[in-house]
Design a protein around this nucleic acid. Structure first.
Lengths: 339, 339
DNA sequence: CCTTGTTGCGCAAGCGTTTGCGTTCAGATT
DNA sequence: AATCTGAACGCAAACGCTTGCGCAACAAGG
């Protein structure tokens, strides 16, 4: 049996309430008594039971974090950074990996975080019904992906601007047949793929390039999907000379497909990604960099601030900077075209 | 205010105890009453408060997972798989990201999981003192890394065999100057780097190759570290013609260094990694594959089994299979050697 | 010397469950 | 008809904290 607050109280010759106040730095305890209690507690190896204290106080000092796939670089990185901020502030994080539709549904119907967390950070886009469920928790909410949603603090990037940078870069290099590997699939209504697609279309229009629907393929935001998509794009009658992939992982898949087809990058086909994945540099991928870890950390900080200032800070919206990172997968189109 | 058990009891015209028993499937409730209670609970959107129920029952239905760096592929993947198993069994996971020495120390001294989790899965190697702290929690313990440790169920691979496969592959190709990028650093006494190093030395000895200490460099298990290490190896008077990196991430760093030095892979230098990182295929890296996600899932399953069978199942030790994956970064040494 | 504050601490009532035990009551057993 | 037996359910006591309130004791102000 580990020590309870009463054991500490007895050993220190005071009441349990005094122990509670002393250990949590609340007023109403003289310094001498406080020090003595701390000493006794340390000596007994006492730590307050979280269950008991949250039951009594209503505060849990726990943050729920919802992630679609912990294993994917983007989410893992965001989570990592957010966790650091939370734990530095004394909060624990309860992780929910909601990749599959079943676990996701189960989560939102049973809502296991009810009365268990002080706030929720979600890295997946809740549908309308789901965000209503989250709001019903009555705790601060934040997200690092997708667009604005009532009740959520969102920290993100300017997807349109990022995409414009990328596509314009290809245009400036002289490309006219510019393909896109998107990630529109999934039941998640996520504004990112849409924003990026619109920006892509806009840049093409701006440059006076007619849009060819055959030059768009779905890559599902995975490496394999990117590979499949690139393969599709290579199969059309006049393949693209350059491809914009909505994520680095898909871009890498595209790279793999190109290698399989014995096509050189960037001589035959240029490829540009999005994210600046930690390994983008290894493969020399040109991409649009976004501060992934920073977004997680910032979202966490905003959440904590809402927790501190009880004066319900209205959920804000912050945009992080993006920048084009030129590496070795983009170049002017070859005069011969890919063959 | 969300509904409490008493609200449900009142609405259903029964006592709170009956509600508790009904909802948790315990005997002592007639089927009709049970169904009716379930209906009422669903209608009220009632979920039992975890804090209250764990305070009362002692069970938390929560697993603590300790990870050094969530953002790294290996750990993220293990965590992902483990979480799925846990959540499918109705357990939540409390995540602790213990990468930095400070957070790590804080965790082990304050032990915030005390009375908060039913079991612990650690993806970092606790030092003697730390594992004693974990054992003091009195809950089942498991790990997916490092060697045997009293009180821990460990799921892992045969590091020696994996390394032997890798190094022998290089030897068989005809290499004689075989470098190694290791990851011995860190305060974690981790048997993996040591096992792998020993196996490396053994294979060299077996092949009658004299060991050259200048051909070993520390890559810190990161991409950047691998790049640095490779750079060091290239600076010695007679650089290696092949390099075994103890992780794919370091191998990728090495690839980057080689590209910077305008050295071709595998023509000038062969590189082999370890792990079969999800992007190893993209860069064509030859490597030793280990079932990463499976290890996480298996460890989680073993933990759950210990939780179910109260008959204290003695902690076991399971070894998962490894296999050599030949891709494009290894080849026989060039007659000229790297220049 | 008697108020009026402070300060430091203990009392006890929760917080929302779980669970051992007691009670009730219908049906089975003598 | 009297007794026994379960099954089904309610009572109330934990579980280990937090916190509003009350009560000394003591300092300062009149």
């Amino acid at each position: 049996m580990t020590a309870s607050i009463n054991d500490v109280a007895r050993a220190a010759g005071v009441s349990a309430s005094t122990v509670s106040r002393a250990l949590r730095g609340r007023p109403g305890v003289s310094d001498e008594v406080r020090d003595q209690i701390k000493a006794v507690a340390a000596q007994l190896g006492y730590t307050a039971s979280r269950s008991a204290s949250s039951l009594a106080s209503g505060r849990t000092f726990t943050i729920g974090v919802l992630v679609p796939y912990v294993g994917r670089w983007f989410f893992g990185t965001v989570l990592d950074a957010a966790e650091q901020v939370f734990s530095a502030a004394g909060y624990d994080v309860l992780l929910y990996n909601l990749g599959s539709p079943e676990t996701r549904k189960r989560f939102f119907t049973r809502l296991p975080v009810r009365k268990r967390v002080d706030a929720v950070l979600t890295l997946l886009i809740p549908e309308e019904e789901e965000s209503a469920a989250l709001r019903s928790l009555g705790v601060p909410l934040a997200t690092t992906v997708g667009g604005a949603r009532p009740g959520f603090t969102v920290v993100g990037i300017d997807d349109r601007a990022g995409t414009e940078n990328a596509v314009r870069h290809l245009v400036n290099l002289g490309h006219r047949r510019i393909g896109m590997i998107s990630g529109s699939s999934g039941p998640l209504h996520w504004t990112t793929p849409i924003d990026r697609r619109n920006a892509y279309l806009d840049v093409l229009a701006d440059a006076g390039i007619a849009h060819d629907p055959a030059l768009e393929a779905d890559g599902d935001y995975t490496v394999e999907g990117g590979e499949r998509a690139m393969t599709e794009l290579l199969a059309v009658s006049r393949p693209p000379t350059a491809v914009f992939a909505q994520s680095d992982e898909m871009a890498m898949g595209a790279l793999r497909a190109l290698r399989r087809h014995r096509l050189r990058v960037p001589e035959d086909v240029s490829v540009i990604g999005f994210d600046d994945h930690e390994l983008a540099d290894v493969v020399g991928l040109t991409t649009v960099a976004q501060p992934v870890a920073d977004q997680g950390a910032e979202a966490a900080r905003l959440l904590l601030r809402q927790l501190d200032e009880l004066g319900a800070e209205p959920p804000g919206q912050v945009r992080m900077p993006i920048r084009l990172v030129l590496r070795e997968t983009t170049a002017p189109p070859s005069p011969r075209g890919p063959q």
